[in-house]
Design a protein around this nucleic acid. Sequence first.
DNA 1: GTGTAGGCGCAAAGCGTTTTGCAAATCGCG
DNA 2: CGCGATTTGCAAAACGCTTTGCGCCTACAC
Lengths: 346, 346
Amino acid sequence: MIFVTEPSTKPWTMQQIADAAGVSVTTVSHTMSGKRPVNPQTALRIKRLIDEFGYVPDAGARRLQSGRSRMIGLAVPDISNWYFGRIARGAEEMADELDFGLIVCSTFNSDPRREKRYFNMLRTRMIDGLVYTAGREMNEMNELEKVALSSPVVLADEGINRLSSIPWVTSENYEGGRLLGAHVRALGHTKAVIIGGFAGLNSTVERVAGIRQSFPNALVLNGDFEMQAGYDLVGDLLANDVRFTALFGGNDLMAIGAIKRLHEEGLRVPEDVTVVGFDDVEIASVITPPLTTVRQDVVSIGRNSARLLIEGLEAGTFEDTASVVLPVELVVRGTSGPVAAPPGAV
Amino acid sequence: MIFVTEPSTKPWTMQQIADAAGVSVTTVSHTMSGKRPVNPQTALRIKRLIDEFGYVPDAGARRLQSGRSRMIGLAVPDISNWYFGRIARGAEEMADELDFGLIVCSTFNSDPRREKRYFNMLRTRMIDGLVYTAGREMNEMNELEKVALSSPVVLADEGINRLSSIPWVTSENYEGGRLLGAHVRALGHTKAVIIGGFAGLNSTVERVAGIRQSFPNALVLNGDFEMQAGYDLVGDLLANDVRFTALFGGNDLMAIGAIKRLHEEGLRVPEDVTVVGFDDVEIASVITPPLTTVRQDVVSIGRNSARLLIEGLEAGTFEDTASVVLPVELVVRGTSGPVAAPPGAV
DNA sequence: GTGTAGGCGCAAAGCGTTTTGCAAATCGCG
DNA sequence: CGCGATTTGCAAAACGCTTTGCGCCTACAC
């Protein structure tokens, strides 16, 4: 039976569905949730009506009553960044698969005001849990730790051991560094510099440690993961007459920036300097020469973070949650080559 | 060992604040909203308590009662894409400035199921309005149009004239195309091909039209805005012996892919072929030679979309809302050069 | 002292769900 | 038929907030 469709834009309420079906809201609710058996005939009638009306339950009311929103948040330093975009993509995929919604928000590089906003989303119960991605440093940990006491939080892209209560997802950063170091070392290089990421990040520390397995005394500079940093820091190195035949970028972008500067200064890659990155961004294979790097599955970081969070949410605890470490893979391309013959040889 | 759900972690309710202050919830509510005068002394006491307790009102309950959530949605085809990441960034900035929250969601390239999800967010009243960014084509317009009847929607990055009810924000796509065409034409080129974006997008149509101002008969191929498309389509062109000395990329990525293929096929840029792009991505200035392109302010597209939406929301209508067209700028770099001397000359 | 006004606070009515108790109807089986 | 054991459905109580209708109390003018 068709209802008189008023030209109103107001959404239907469950009560209206119930009235139309000649039952009570209880029955409608149970038909939708399946928490109690409903007469198949009645159920069918109700479902038809729901479809016909295009009824969708009010999210706020639902949350208010049930206490859960089936929404999780993702806090990243900057959503316009390639890296965090991938994480967001992965988290969203997984959330979707598990029938959760995802709210993505930028902390604008750990702007404390913004950060508070996210934590507040937890407090306002707008979201049931949070995937947190570290920006500059992990010094916000105190705040995070406090939040994690009362609300489920998963850390993406940064491992921390001292906090047993917060599960995390990260790549094999140490192993990636080790692979790069070994590769470059095998090419005969002995003088290397490292342009690492933020010193306050665990991932940076681990990558550097991995590289140093092969280059114990490599000079370490720190950049902000942007192309410009690689460009500028190479300028500093050259201006100070630092000698090196190999350069490790904390990520691909800094490596690419470094290559640009090297070219401008008349140095050839890889003939004069071997350069390697980390991440394997799309563009890495397109620049000339294509970049040797370590591939990490960034989307997976997002996927697994969301998965851990939602699983913990549904279990009601993170007690049985094991943190995840994802494998990496060395990708050798054109920017790494054997160390140059000593000057004088052709 | 810390548990996720501890009894003491329950958020405070307004009632508890009221009890502690010795007043009724009404007074607390009015203190917070300022909708009715409250005795300054009482107000101060209440505010202190709120701070001390760290009280934050429940978002769901608030929405349920007031009817609005102060949240807007942003639907993009793929958040991990550079372009949409920028839009998201801009939208988020603006939303934040106007004290709104932003929920970013990917439609996974117009997956109808996903799309429905967003529209449903409107229906569940989780968000007050939506910024919609078109993916492949504007064929979803029917659905969109329907949604826009009852809920505020702003279209980012695509202009549509036939729908006066939906405001939009876009760059001067025609002008950008015109600038590129004129620039390349002035270099003496006469044989050009265009590797445009999706044929179903207004932006593509306009850019092509702008270019054709100078190259009325230019061949047009369509790609998906990814590097690979530029790479593949150039392969097709060469395999079919199509002659051209200039190539227009629908965006920078396709232009870069095209350049890669041209290089591989032994053609020099710009000596043999002039290539230009659209967008001015960061990487455009880093590849060799650096890419000639048109710069558009993608972040601004996001910012203005959010602004229009929120303003309309607060005004209660889009009647007075004027769509926005953002200026573009020609950036001449190294991939465009004078047409080659006829074969035989050095 | 009376009348008028306005500042301030309270109780209570929702907002649209989910989730009890309860009760009526139905059924199985001796 | 009788008597538990199911089903099936309803009314009503939350959930935490905003908002409205009232009433009290203090001022101030006459």
